[in-house]
Design a protein around this nucleic acid. Sequence first.
DNA 1: CTGAAAGCGCTTACAG
DNA 2: CTGAAAGCGCTTACAG
Lengths: 335, 335
Amino acid sequence: MATIKDIAKKAGVSISTVSYALNNSPKISQKTKEKIWKIANELNYQPNTFARSLKGKKRNLIGLVVHEIRGPYYQELVRGIQDVAVMYGYNLIIFCELENKEAASVDLLNNKIVDGALLLSSHITREHIEMLSKRDIPLVLMDRKIKMPKVSSVIINNQKGGKIVARHLYELGHRRIGYMHGALDSMEDKTRFKGFKNELKNKGINIDKRDILNGNFTEESGYKAMKNYLEKNGNNIATAFFCANDEMAIGAISAIKEFGLNVPQDISIVGFDNILLSTYITPKLTTIKRPVYDLGKFAAYQLLNMLDGKSSEEVSIELDVELVIRESTEKPRNV
Amino acid sequence: MATIKDIAKKAGVSISTVSYALNNSPKISQKTKEKIWKIANELNYQPNTFARSLKGKKRNLIGLVVHEIRGPYYQELVRGIQDVAVMYGYNLIIFCELENKEAASVDLLNNKIVDGALLLSSHITREHIEMLSKRDIPLVLMDRKIKMPKVSSVIINNQKGGKIVARHLYELGHRRIGYMHGALDSMEDKTRFKGFKNELKNKGINIDKRDILNGNFTEESGYKAMKNYLEKNGNNIATAFFCANDEMAIGAISAIKEFGLNVPQDISIVGFDNILLSTYITPKLTTIKRPVYDLGKFAAYQLLNMLDGKSSEEVSIELDVELVIRESTEKPRNV
DNA sequence: CTGAAAGCGCTTACAG
DNA sequence: CTGAAAGCGCTTACAG
């Protein structure tokens, strides 16, 4: 491994000169610079980033912390982030959280391997974020909001998602409408439900307690919750359901079919996320599409602005969702 | 940021003692160690990994380089890698290749941000791998084989995959069988085809040139290639097709249905990969399952052994595939 | 325009 | 069992 020392010796100059030259400082004459560059090339010189970082230099590296890598969601997200990062001359690395070792990624951030990070993992506690914030590591939270120095956030308007689902079902003529929870401790679930419930209330509709089901965001849980519901309530059921995500909606549809009912004729179903599968099942799923690419883009943009010192202010951006109407919703039978 | 200097001052000892104590060296007395550990804790001390790396210390970090993040494939792969990495006390970071900037991830490796890496990206050239090999950065190639110092590889037996598909279709009674290429320059496609063709030849069957279609691994290309084939050849067609991946197989099935024929009654279809969608389409797809979790596991295992100096030898591991018979294959009509 | 020197935060032979 | 000191490869005021 060639170092600046080797270059200095070969060029017959001091290491300071080499360092300045390699950083293209105006202090050094063009002639000397060129000589040094040439030698650096010959020696296949690669700067040691650790030595550089020790002196407090930026690394032009940002991190993305996720707790899982799955589906087209991440692909788009990463694309959104990278498109911006490249423009700014930064590289991206991804940390995939370990289920039972959240500290791992925090350590990585603590070690300043990256200049700043985008956090999508809900596993990282508020305390850890606070610690990173105190250490001046710029952070952008995705799908989550915490007010702290050096911490910005970009969230998706889940509440509005719930609202437009409510409006869609109401306008089709549904009056008895149910909801399937994903997880009771999930912010996303909570805000989706809130927007949904409030909008229905505005229209004079209260969700019947019997029509509130509980799943855990998986297809199987959606299947079970719906099956259980149908077996218990027979024909006295809601004419439409909003499920907190697509996976559960797909499970629910299976259960409905198996029970001998039809979607959407007997029950309309709406999901959330617009996953790839939602267009492959029968009937195609009506759902809410999240601007995932934009989520990545705005988050990266915000992070890089913080890193470049352009906007020292923490900001909080909210992105809008969109209703995608397909085949799983229709007016109820009696309308 | 507390440093060992701060700890030393507070403890009234030298920085060497602090360093030894923090590294739990037997040289230091238990009493001193405990005092130092306590102070380190109080000061919320975090070692500076750059300083450490500068001295040539390992970072206990490995990297995975991919050119795209998609689908359940990566999720399983990452899980396989992490399960092993955790056992060895290593963390994983993922570099997502940029389409037009392959050098980016090579730079990252060159900078020794990680101790070693797993390479899944075919974009990284042989020259770059050679350069990394020369710099003594242990590498494990996945789905690719290059003989070089410090470079191991774990590959999936694509050839066998082709072979067992051929055998399956032959045993069902098919005698005129076609193949749909994914990409002509893809090693994976090539070896799948090779295994397929050779096995058919062993059975006395030569693939008719007309029955060899060309796609590009996407669903759309599979749809187009099959549509085109059917329109051109009318009823004089193969009774079964092996498509180089599931996406194309799914596209092909759409085209066949649209043309008014049935799968598997008129044409049997086999894919490769066993993606999630393959069980959701109608008919469910017969396909080849790759041991993706194991791919990650073995690759990580090999890398960590190289890092720990347990096996300085480069190895090349080959993993077996498996036929998953579902609904898209059946004996041909005339049998 | 160039160089000598201090220093970033650690590790580790060496001496005692 | 503990400490003084060199050194890892850079950057950067400072002096000339």
